[in-house]
């Protein structure tokens, strides 16, 4: 963590795929800057030799047997679709 956290809001909003207005950018930058300042305190904690916890109670090997079950009908799968055609979700043409 740097002394004064730098949050590049343009880059982060781009990664998060959210269009922000200039006003929102200014507001969020300021607010999150405060939050990040608060979060800076974490660097005071001695974490050497400490294992990270991804789960509060990690259990290993949680799985299911490979038995196929019925899923949704195409109709149910598409019932909330904002746009569809030929039983598929339609989006503006994707150019890679």
């Amino acid at each position: 963590m740097s002394e004064t956290p730098e949050l590049n809001i343009d880059r982060v909003a781009e990664l998060a795929r959210i269009a922000l207005t200039p006003a929102e950018k200014a507001e969020y930058s300021a607010q999150l800057g405060e939050v990040l300042k608060h979060i800076e305190q974490l660097k005071q904690v001695d974490v050497s030799g400490v294992e990270p916890s991804a789960h509060a109670f990690a259990v290993e090997n949680v799985w299911a047997d490979d038995v196929a079950q019925a899923g949704l009908t195409a109709e149910a799968a598409l019932q909330n679709a904002p746009a569809q055609r030929d039983n598929m979700i339609a989006v503006p043409k994707v150019v890679e």
């Binding site: 990664l15 904690v45 974490v47 400490v50 990270p52 916890s53």
Partner: peptide, 21 residues
């Protein structure tokens, strides 16, 4: 998104997971 982004993961997310421990 910021705390996970390239270059910040260890300082934020990984450290937070350790403090969580």
């Amino acid at each position: 998104t910021y705390v996970l982004s390239s270059g910040y993961y260890d300082a934020y997310y990984l450290r937070a997971q350790k403090v969580r421990t």
